[in-house]
Amino acid sequence: MLRAAGAADLEHPGGTLLAHLDRVGALLTTWGARPALATAGLCHAFYGTDGFAVALLPLERREELVQAIGEEAEATVYFYASCDRKASYRHLTDDDAEFTDRFTGERLRPALRQRQEFAELTAANELDIASVSPRMRAQHGAALLELFTRWRPLLSDPAWAHCRAVLA
């Protein structure tokens, strides 16, 4: 499905978007992520993101991704893609954190597990890019380290260790 959507043909730091997606899914697996989260990592760019505007599949066709990867993994993909980063990142660790859906404008209060998985997926995504692009790491590494330090309560020990190894 990723190949059919053109992920192998889109340039991305470290090669192609498909290569990046493969690495993100694999990184989540090495951190001990449950299978649905690792699958979401592989597919996290299907609807585009606040930082990567290219969508491989329009939102009107979400059911196709549900059929391919399951409801739980697709819901994580949607949640990740829907994040209005400017509105949502700052207070993600708060118990009453407000999360803004950039597609609908809706404000949600995600549960702890959803915030933890969002943080893990975000870390895997950003750390993969920082690992393969010295320019991106030099340009954004300090801000990413600051973000992930704030998010430390949400990150697994392996994810946090990887953050420090790549960004410190």
Rank of each mutant, 00 (worst) to 15 (best):
G41Y: 07
G41Q: 15
G41L: 11
G41E: 09
L42C: 09
L42D: 02
C43S: 14
C43D: 11
C43Y: 07
C43F: 04
H44F: 07
H44S: 09
H44L: 04
H44M: 06
A45C: 14
A45M: 15
A45D: 15
F46H: 14
F46Q: 11
F46G: 15
F46D: 11
F46Y: 14
Y47S: 12
Y47T: 12
G48D: 06
G48Q: 05
G48A: 14
T49H: 05
T49Q: 07
T49E: 03
T49P: 01
T49N: 00
D50T: 04
D50S: 14
G51A: 04
G51P: 00
G51N: 09
G51L: 13
F52E: 14
F52Q: 08
F52Y: 10
A53F: 01
A53W: 08
A53M: 02
A53N: 12
V54S: 03
V54D: 13
V54M: 06
V54I: 09
V54L: 10
A55Q: 11
A55R: 15
A55N: 10
L56Y: 05
L56W: 01
L56V: 15
L56F: 13
L57E: 13
L57F: 09
L57A: 09
P58Q: 09
P58M: 08
P58A: 10
L59H: 06
L59N: 03
L59G: 15
L59P: 06
L59V: 05
E60W: 09
E60H: 01
E60D: 13
E60P: 07
R61G: 13
R61A: 13
R61P: 03
R61I: 10
R62E: 07
R62V: 05
R62L: 07
R62W: 03
E63M: 01
E63R: 01
E63W: 02
E64M: 00
E64S: 03
E64Q: 02
E64C: 00
E64R: 00
L65R: 05
L65P: 02
L65F: 01
V66R: 12
V66F: 01
V66N: 02
V66Y: 00
V66A: 02
Q67K: 02
Q67L: 01
Q67V: 06
Q67T: 07
A68C: 14
A68T: 11
A68F: 03
A68G: 10
I69D: 03
I69M: 01
I69G: 05
I69H: 03
I69C: 06
G70C: 04
G70S: 08
G70K: 00
G70I: 02
G70A: 12
E71V: 04
E71A: 09
E71W: 00
E71H: 08
E71M: 05
E71Y: 04
E72W: 04
E72P: 11
E72M: 06
E72V: 13
A73F: 00
A73G: 15
A73V: 10
A73P: 12
A73W: 00
E74T: 13
E74W: 06
E74K: 12
E74F: 04
A75Q: 05
A75Y: 06
A75N: 06
T76F: 09
T76C: 15
T76P: 10
V77F: 04
V77S: 04
V77D: 01
Y78F: 14
Y78C: 03
Y78I: 02
F79S: 12
F79M: 09
F79N: 04
F79P: 09
F79H: 12
Y80H: 15
